[in-house]
Amino acid sequence: MTDVLVGIENLSRDFDVSKPWLNRVLENEEKKYVTAVNDVSFEIRRGETFALVGESGSGKSTIAKLIVGLIRPTGGQILFDGTNVATRGSASMRQLRSRFQMIFQDPFASLNPRWRVKDIIAEPLRTFGVAEGRAAWEKRVDELLETVGLSAKDGAKYPHEFSGGQRQRVAIARALSAQPEFIVCDEPTSALDVSVQAQILNLMRDLQDEFGLTYLFISHDLSVVRHMASRIGVLYLGRLVEVAEGKTLFRDPKHPYTKMLLDAVPDLEMTGRKRQPVEGEIPNPIDPPSGCTYHPRCRLANDRCRSEVPVLKLHGDTKAACFALEEGRS
């Protein structure tokens, strides 16, 4: 199981947040950039669910959009099944695009309100020519609707006639329609009721088993991630601070930030163990802290942490970027 489907190498993305040109000239200001994703490398193996977790503003959704090509990277590259996604030509690009799909966060915004559900689901498969002719694609749409737990009759309805959970099922059916291998799920359950979340997550797991899908699962909800992920990457301010197997990460977190995140997860067992309360909040990414960006919130920080940037290194089975860990201070 070391067959890499998606490889992310030194991926970076800056956003221009400068004021308009005239204001800059008048106020004598430089151009300003936010580094949303900073030198991120990881790989996603075929058939696994790789989860990215992090607080708001940590760059999770930016990575998702970079991978599916909705925005272009400032640096680094994305390899899909060995092909560089950025330099693809238009012919191979079309072929490549049909192999990955995305499930969005908000099922109320991800379905065109003026289209019937069957047309929404059919769009990818008609675009990629998976099903030729009206009868063929309608049959396929009916099958897809039943696969995701809806009725074939629902195809004639409009999105506003469905609940949030049902809409997300429609979005999943659309993602599946062109038979992709890899699906990026950008917080697919965070807009849903807790009772519906579990249904959607279980559906996604069943579909993964049935179609051999690979997921990149993005979430800020650690209990959801625990349920879904085979491996987990922890993002902090656009950098990966820890990458580990799901079970390892929850049993034995290495990075101080991961420990703090896990301590913030409520549990029913009331273990009585001492928890580290969440301290501070994520810094302003326009003006990030020097060195390790976590140092203002970290109890173990020393002068080295404030000046040098740590890189991911192996600690046991876990990769973590932390000087305290390297020096055995933790």
């Binding site: 959009k65 599916v68 090509g69 909705l70 690009m93 079309r94 695009r97 049909s98 799909q101 995305m102 969005f104 966060q105 908000d106 915004a109 991800s110 379905l111 065109n112 929404i120 769009e123 990818p124 675009t127 990629f128 659309r174 062109a178």
Partner: peptide
């Protein structure tokens, strides 16, 4: 909105 992103995603 995400439905436009979904359409861009498939390269329309």
């Amino acid at each position: 909105k995400e439905y436009v992103q979904a359409a861009r995603l498939i390269g329309l």
